Simulated scan of single mutants.
Amino acid sequence: MTLQSPEPPSDHTRLRYAAERAQRQLTLDAIRADLEAQPSPRSAQSAGRHWCADITAMADAVAQALRKAA
Rank of each mutant, 00 (worst) to 15 (best):
P39V: 10
E36I: 04
A53T: 08
L3N: 01
D60V: 02
A19N: 14
Q38Y: 03
E7K: 08
M58G: 02
S43I: 11
S10F: 06
R32L: 12
D34K: 14
R49I: 04
Q23M: 10
T27P: 00
P41E: 11
A59D: 02
I31A: 11
A18G: 11
R42V: 14
L3Q: 04
R14S: 06
T27L: 13
R14N: 11
D11A: 14
P6D: 01
R32V: 11
A37L: 07
S46D: 11
L35Y: 08
A22E: 15
D29H: 10
L26Q: 14
Q45N: 11
W51T: 04
S10K: 07
S5T: 04
T2Y: 01
Q25R: 15
K68N: 01
M1G: 08
D60Q: 10
P9V: 05
R21F: 07
P8W: 01
Q25M: 13
A53C: 01
E36K: 07
E7T: 09
E20M: 13
R21H: 11
R32H: 11
E7Q: 12
A63K: 04
E20W: 12
A47Y: 05
T13A: 15
P41I: 04
W51Y: 13
P9E: 09
Q25I: 08
T13V: 11
P6Y: 00
